[in-house]
Design a protein around this nucleic acid. Structure first.
Length: 277
DNA sequence: CCTATCACCTGCAGGC
DNA sequence: TGCCTGCAGGTGATAG
């Protein structure tokens, strides 16, 4: 479900809706949700701690507590709901509930159970932990430069789309925005990354940041049924130019958008505007 | 080290 | 209606 802009929207929403509550208790209904400790250890550790801060790196959401840091990756369908304790919830797909002292609950909902939680001691170097072992620099990290992207990518035998999706280099771009970035660059998603010259990486980074920044401003993208933790569905709709627009006219030239599989992912592009080399 | 493929899960749309 | 297949905004493990 969520790429960087959606996770950022969730982060901001939780910051407003929850502020800094104190955890009364935690219930885990799907044990494998917790990646690096047992549910019992997880629940006992969190009890009594306050949520002090909400952060994000790439697609990871980070809750900073008094003594621990809770890292949450929503993968395909993870969602948070902020609801009062007495409100009914979807028992089948709710896998974790955080109950706060003020009677509010934070409920983690995940149809496909792909999402994961990681618990760390506060103060450890997060980037050195298991959750982040394959996580590169966030799209908006100030130390992310065109030079770095060039060094990491230019010798690899992968397509442009694969490069954009590779979280170990630049973290945060997913399948939707990879297509949108390829469109704004005017490249076919399937071109070899080796076709890019060193100078092209400046534009690559600029367009990645422009697309992701615009999506964050719009509050993320909703296709199908993604709902932010506000519980709104479709209020924030970013206008996508190519993704999920098979057979619809290209916004630039009117040519029908093509859908094909690239790097095992459904990929949309304009066969006329996006050059093969 | 690099790349490709499978595994993890469930629900839904479309074809027959 | 029911069954089957393919597909879904992700990523880790594993096989070459």
């Amino acid at each position: 479900m969520p790429e960087l802009p959606e996770v950022e929207t969730v982060r901001k929403t939780l910051e407003v809706q929850l502020a800094h509550p104190i955890i009364e208790s935690v219930d885990i209904f799907w044990p494998r949700l917790i990646d690096n400790c047992t549910p019992k250890e997880f629940c006992e550790a969190l009890q009594g701690q306050q949520i002090n801060d909400y952060q994000r790196i790439g697609k990871y959401l980070i809750f900073v507590l008094d003594r621990n840091v809770l890292v949450s990756h929503l993968r395909m369908e993870g969602k948070y709901y902020v609801q009062p304790q007495n409100e009914p919830y979807d028992v089948k797909h709710t896998h974790a509930i955080f109950t706060f002292k003020n009677g509010i609950q934070l409920r983690y909902h995940d149809t496909r159970k792909f999402g994961r939680f990681y618990l760390y001691e506060r103060g450890v170097d997060l980037k050195a932990q298991k959750a982040f072992q394959h996580c590169g620099l966030d799209v908006f990290d100030e130390s992310l430069t065109p030079q770095y992207l060039y060094e990491q990518l230019h010798l690899r035998r992968i397509t442009l789309k694969q490069a954009l999706l590779d979280q170990s280099i630049m973290a945060g771009v997913g399948n939707i925005y990879a297509d949108e970035i390829c469109f704004s660059l005017g490249y076919d998603p399937e071109i070899s990354i080796k076709r890019l010259r060193k100078k092209d990486y400046t534009e690559l980074l600029a367009q990645a940041r422009r697309i992701m920044g615009g999506a964050m401003k719009a509050g993320g993208t909703t296709i199908r049924s993604y709902t932010s933790s506000l519980g709104v569905d479709g209020r924030f709709q970013l206008q996508l130019k190519v993704h999920a627009r098979k057979d619809l006219p290209c916004p630039t030239c009117g040519t029908p958008i093509i859908k094909k599989t690239v790097a095992t992912r459904g990929t949309y592009f304009c066969p006329k505007c996006q050059r093969k080399r």
